[in-house]
């Protein structure tokens, strides 16, 4: 059920990318897809009644290893979020450049590929 809702969120983003004409709307669709994928990866590592993967000073490692959630997807998602920010900045820069060139955000009016 939760996985399916995550997929629905991804689909909404993909719908925005495929059908919208505004370049900023396309960027927004890509952002929503990125959020859905990040959330899905973290959902995969959740354990019932889990604790955060940070060891306290008092608890023993053996007891901790039976409670902790999966730290590996969290580590991968942590880098993915920051990369996503850099990529979003690059896409916004391309949008601004296209706006300066063509005077519009509409991709159907950007017919001329020259220059």
């Amino acid at each position: 059920m939760i996985y399916a809702l995550c997929l629905v969120l991804f689909m909404v983003g993909l719908y925005g990318v495929v059908t919208k004409k505004n370049t900023v709307k396309i960027v927004i669709g890509i952002i929503i897809m990125e959020y859905a994928v990040n959330l899905f990866l973290v959902l995969l590592g959740y354990r019932k009644d889990g604790v955060a993967p940070i060891i306290d000073e008092g608890t023993s490692v053996l007891k901790f290893s039976q409670l902790a959630v999966d730290p590996l997807p969290q580590a991968l998602v942590l880098t993915a979020i920051v990369i996503g920010l850099g990529v979003i900045a690059l896409m916004v820069a391309i949008c601004i450049r296209l706006y300066e060139r063509y005077g519009t955000f509409d991709i159907t009016e950007m017919r001329r590929l020259k220059g």
């Binding site: 920010l85 850099g86 900045a89 916004v92 820069a93 601004i96 706006y99 300066e100 063509y102 005077g103 519009t104």
Partner: peptide, 17 residues
């Protein structure tokens, strides 16, 4: 990230087309 924000805000040119 500070540099990308500065780039996006300083070199921003508003085109009147």
């Amino acid at each position: 990230l500070f540099m990308v924000f500065i780039i996006l805000s300083v070199l921003r040119v508003v085109v009147k087309k």
